[in-house]
Each structure stands twice: as C-alpha cells, then as structure tokens.
Design a protein around this nucleic acid. Structure first.
Lengths: 210, 210
DNA sequence: AGTAATTATTAAGCATTGTTAAATAGTTTT
DNA sequence: AAAACTATTTAACAATGCTTAATAATTACT
C-alpha cells in the first residue's frame, strides 16, 4: 500500500500527537516508541518522519500542548485580589494535580531526550516563560518594592521547589513510612516560604527607613 | 574461552561498580548499558549477570555507594552549635555540589528503572533515612517543641525543594536568561523557608500560651 | 594420577529501540 | 493514457537488555 490520503498533513500531525498522549496515559515516557505511536495511528514509522524531524521533535510538540493545558487551567482560576499566597498555592495545586493525573505527560516535559538534544526553540521557551509570569505577577503583588531580579529569582526558587515535591512524591518511595500527602507538603512549602520571604522584605524596608 | 579467574567474585563486583561509575562521568544514566560496563571491565555481559541479578540491581549498588559518599561528605562538616540554618544550608550545598560534579551518578539515584521495578531493599532505605535524619536533627534543634510528624514533614518539604532546584538547574534551560546561580536559589529557599517555619511555630506557641 | 562434577565465561539468539533508504502504490499533471 | 510526483510501506542497520546454551578451566573425588 501507499499514498492513502486518508488524512491531510495537519490531520496526521494531530493524530500523531493524540496517539502519543493516549499512550502516555498508560505508560512512562521512556517506554514510548515511534512504532507504538505509528501503530496507534494506523500508520507505520516512516510516516512519522515525514511530519516530524525525529522522535524528540515529536515529543517537543506533545510538551507544547501540555504546557498549553497547564496555562489554560491556570487562567481558569478565580484569583483573589488580596490573598496572593492562596493564588500561588492554587497554581501549585494545578501543577501537582496535573502531575498526578498525567504522570506520563508530565514526566515528558523534563525528558532529557528532548532537552539535551538541541537548544529549545523560541516558541517553546515563550510558553515556559508565560507560566513563570503568572507566579511573578503574584509575587510582585506581595512585594511591590522588590526588584525585578528578586522576583524572577523567587519565582524560580518557588517553582523548582514545587516541582521537586511533585517529582519525589510521584515517582518513588522516599516518603514510604511518613504519612504526609503531597498536598500537605506543597502547602507547607508555600506557606512557610512566602511568610519568610515577606518578612525578609519588611526587615529590609525597616533597615532602609532607619 | 572461559573461566579466567583473573578476579575473585568481590573483585569483579568492585570492578563492575567502578566501571559503571566511570562511564557515568561521561554520559547520562539512561545511556548506560550492560555491554558498556562489561567492555570497560574487560569481560562480557554474562559475567555481570553472575554477580548481579540484573541491571537495576547493579545500578542499585552504584546508588548505595553514591549515598555513602554523600553521607560521609555530610559527616565531615564542621557543624555550628547555634546556627542550625547554616548547617542545613551546608548540607544543601554538599548535595548541590555533588549533583553538579557527578550529574550521571546523581541522576541515577532517581532513575525509574531502579525505583519502579521492585520494592527497595531495607539496607537501601536505611541509607536514605540516615541522610534525612541529618536534616531532621537540625530542624529539631530549631524547633524543639515541634512534633515528630512535623519534623519529618518539614524535612521532606525542604529536601524535595532542594532536589527540585538541583534538577532544574542542572538539566535544562528553564533559567536561560535569568542570571541566578543555583547556589543563590538554594540559599533563598532555605533562608526564607526556615524563617517562615520558625515564625509559624512561634505564633502557635503564643496561641497556646494565651 | 585421572576421571567426574562444578562453575566462570563466552557467544549466540530474542525482542526491542530510532532512523534511513529503497521499493511500491496511489494521486495529480501533462 | 502516459508520465511525473509523492505519500506510505517495507526492509535494513546498529544499537539496547535479557536469557540461555555451549565451552573451557578449575576443583573434587576416587
């Protein structure tokens, strides 16, 4: 057989990404293969290489869709005008919940097959930055006098930490005997960190005032 | 050829682990293979399977040695009697430095090939717990009245967060344009979190006193 | 000492993997 | 209707980890 023209190029792309995503519901990112994706599409491997440069390229597009979902979920939130800490906690819970419900998709975002291969394209970095901006906005509201650099730094610290809790609570047994849920851990992190961060800034302001 | 008896069983074990460790200096954990290890030893794969159950088992033993190095490094520290926050920061920097200098070995600790396969053996979990105990001891010194559960929870939060910062700062480009070093991020995390955590406890104590 | 049992080591086979080049069959153009 | 084009398949390559059968060297036993 050849040249079926059952699907346009765009349809094939959509089909490939959807197939990969469905497979990642049942297995880990490292087990995902081109042949599996092709089979799920009803095509063979060669077709994939006509649409995507290679497997990492395909997976990068899967990640782009994942980032979009995360961003859209964040946008749907009813944000509080006053309680910015709660807003950050809500973002963190969206992240945690997604990681729990879609461990395969989530794991893929940090897959070295994709990250190590090439420089990430701009359109992809922009999606990541957009997510960071959400946190930065809340931090800026908490401490309007903080420098831009301090805001960026703090958003990275916070989000890396949230990410770390997700990683370790999802993948393994390090928490085996302890009865702490990941929600509790996330809440402890954000409560204590933001509390400390606010007070640090207040002290600095007092220092300046004296 | 067969039965060279150039090495005893123990020597072969040592040789295999050392070979794996050396390979991990130049490549990522996911690229590491039995054939590579065997070739580096000057043997073939079958020999490995006489010493270890399988590859995950071999890697688990590599990890055990990594954990021991980390623990020994922590023990070498000159701990402060008063400034427990600095002690925790020192532990975190040991962790960060190791991750930076030995990304392959460090990555392997969280490899799913090992973690997902079986339940971890007790002798391994004990090594992990010993490392957590170091942090727990410092936290207990900061807040002697905190419950055991609160100490365990807090150690998990802190260490997961440190781990998250290491993960993201080593593996990828999410921090591309921002000029924050991982040391800065770690310091911000620990300073702010511990500050917030201490104050939270003080408030609770006040509540109880009233 | 010489044969038998044991065991360390190799070598080969299986089912995978990503990727590419060539063959094939359907569509479009001439 | 024939020729040009191209989407799709097929087949091949070099890897991977795992398992097992064959082989060779040592040890144990008579």
């Amino acid at each position: 057989m050849a040249r079926r023209s059952d699907h346009t190029r765009d349809e094939l792309k959509e089909l490939a990404l959807k197939s990969a995503e469905e497979l990642l519901n049942d297995q880990s990112a490292s087990e995902l293969s081109t042949r599996q994706i092709a089979a799920k599409m009803g095509y063979t491997v060669g077709t994939l290489y006509q649409i995507f440069k290679n497997l990492p390229d395909l997976l990068l597009h899967v990640n782009a869709r994942t980032l979009k979902i995360l961003y859209d979920d964040c946008q749907k939130l009813q944000l509080s005008k006053q309680d910015h800490q709660s807003n950050i906690l809500a973002y963190a819970n969206i992240y945690l919940e997604f990681a729990h419900n879609h461990p395969g998709l989530w794991e893929l975002i940090f897959d070295n097959k994709i990250l190590n291969n090439d420089e990430l394209p701009d359109w992809y970095s922009n999606q990541v930055n957009a997510l960071f901006s959400l946190i930065e906005l809340q931090l800026k509201s908490i401490q309007p006098t903080a420098t831009n650099n301090e805001i960026i730094k703090t958003s990275r610290v916070l989000w890396s930490s949230v990410h770390g809790i997700c990683t370790l609570s999802i993948n393994n047994n390090l928490f085996s005997e302890s009865a702490c849920s990941s929600e509790e851990l996330i809440q402890s992190l954000i409560e204590n960190f933001i509390k400390g961060w606010s007070i640090l800034e207040e002290k600095e302001l007092q220092d300046k005032a004296e």
